[in-house]
Nucleic acid binder design. Structure first.
Length: 392
DNA sequence: GTAGGGTTAG
């Protein structure tokens, strides 16, 4: 079938109107671009060949339409991401961007640590009603990364919709933000409120809070309470959870507890990874139990894992704590050979142990060795949990 | 079309 259309009037209208869905246009639309020279344009007759739609061509048509729309949105996403003037580019492209596109830009800003752009975009999205659960969970996560837990709480507290406020992704994101910034007590208090409001916590929720127990006073007992609660809620311990618990035990010098979790984990069929091994080793270091440490490293090798820098440094710590200074020096030499002694940590471990044992000359000798090499150092201390409780 | 993970020093 072939029809002729006389485009004598109202070009823009014709061009902006979609063809009936039962037809697919074969002609090239750019040829229809209206001319400002109305004298010539008015006489233009264009032949459009149309074919009856079959299910197959209908599918292709939909795909092309979807693809074109996707491409233009994708282009707009890039324009906004690369724009030096976010406000004007949002004004220009914001209209065609879907919430998922804006979320992608939001994540991009977050991954690039572009904090001012991140907040500006989120504000725009809120003002234009273009947010979803994902927008909140991403934005709050990045507020945590940029050390702005108060801002995250403000965003969360301003959510009025009940189901959004108890959405597990958003709740986990807020709790993670607090824990990441050293606010475990505030996090646990907020967690209780969230449950009262209807949150059903999942394994991620508990792992998030358990992580906060590692570097905190009374962390072990808090962790035990959380474990009891998650089991009561029918959730199961997983490999990650065991990893966190081992770290909690190690941080509290509880080598028996660590051993017990390690064995439980294996009994339940989880294979320990280097993180599990290093935490248990670290727990052994608190009592200088080098026999068990050596045994564990052997077991690790037998399972096919190669001891890495952290494992060997932790083993050094065990030897030092156990007073095995000759063995320690041998291991330090091995670390050096492997290129694992480029920072000051292993030297500090050995010097500290020697000094505490009153072997100052030997400690000084290690210090001289350290000075001869170009070693690196540096790490900032974490933040304190201060006035957060009163905000909750 | 979103959230979470554990390791080494003082």
């Amino acid at each position: 079938m072939e029809i002729s259309v006389n485009l004598s009037t109202r070009f823009p209208h014709i061009l902006s109107s979609p063809l009936p869905s039962s037809f697919s246009a074969v002609s090239s639309l750019p040829a229809l671009r209206p001319s400002h020279n109305s004298a010539t344009a008015a006489k233009t007759t264009i032949t459009i060949v149309v074919k009856e739609q079959t299910p197959a061509t209908a599918l292709i048509s939909r795909r092309n339409h979807k693809s074109n729309s996707y491409l233009s949105r994708k282009s707009a996403v890039l324009q906004v991401q690369q724009s030096s003037d976010l406000a004007s580019s949002l004004q220009r492209f914001g209209g065609i961007l879907k919430v998922q596109d804006l979320n992608a830009i939001l994540r991009h800003f977050g991954e690039q640590n572009r904090w001012p752009d991140l907040s500006q975009l989120f504000n725009w999205m809120q003002q234009h009603g273009k947010t979803s659960v994902s927008s909140y969970s991403s934005y709050i996560k990045f507020l945590g990364k940029s050390l702005k837990p108060l801002k995250a709480l403000e965003i969360y507290n301003n959510i009025t919709d009940e189901s959004t406020k108890t959405n597990v992704f958003i709740c986990n994101s807020v709790l993670s933000c607090l824990v990441r910034n050293g606010k475990l007590d505030s996090g646990i208090k907020l967690f209780d409120k969230m449950k009262q409001n209807g949150l059903t916590p999942d394994a991620v929720t508990y792992n998030t809070l358990l992580t906060g127990c590692i570097k905190v006073k009374r962390g072990y007992s808090k962790a035990l309470e959380l474990v009891q609660e998650l089991k009561h809620n029918g959730l199961q311990m997983d490999s990650v959870m065991y990893g966190i618990l081992l770290a909690v035990c190690a941080a509290n010098s509880l080598h028996e507890g660590a051993e017990s979790y390690f064995n439980c984990m294996k009994d339940e069929g989880h294979s320990p990874n280097p993180f599990h091994y290093s935490s248990l080793l670290n727990a052994y270091s608190s009592v200088g139990n080098y026999e068990k440490a050596d045994e564990l490293v052997q077991e690790m090798k037998s399972s096919g894992l190669v001891p890495n820098k952290v494992i060997l440094t932790t083993l050094l710590k065990v030897y030092v704590r156990g007073g095995l200074f000759d063995k320690s020096r041998e291991l330090l030499a091995e670390l050096d050979t492997l290129g694992y002694a480029e920072d000051e940590m292993p030297y500090c471990l050995l010097m500290d142990g020697l000094a505490k044992a009153g072997r100052l000359d030997e400690a000084k000798a290690v210090f001289s060795e350290l000075q001869e090499k170009s070693v690196k150092s540096g790490k900032s201390p974490p933040l304190d949990d201060d006035l957060f409780l009163q905000d909750l």
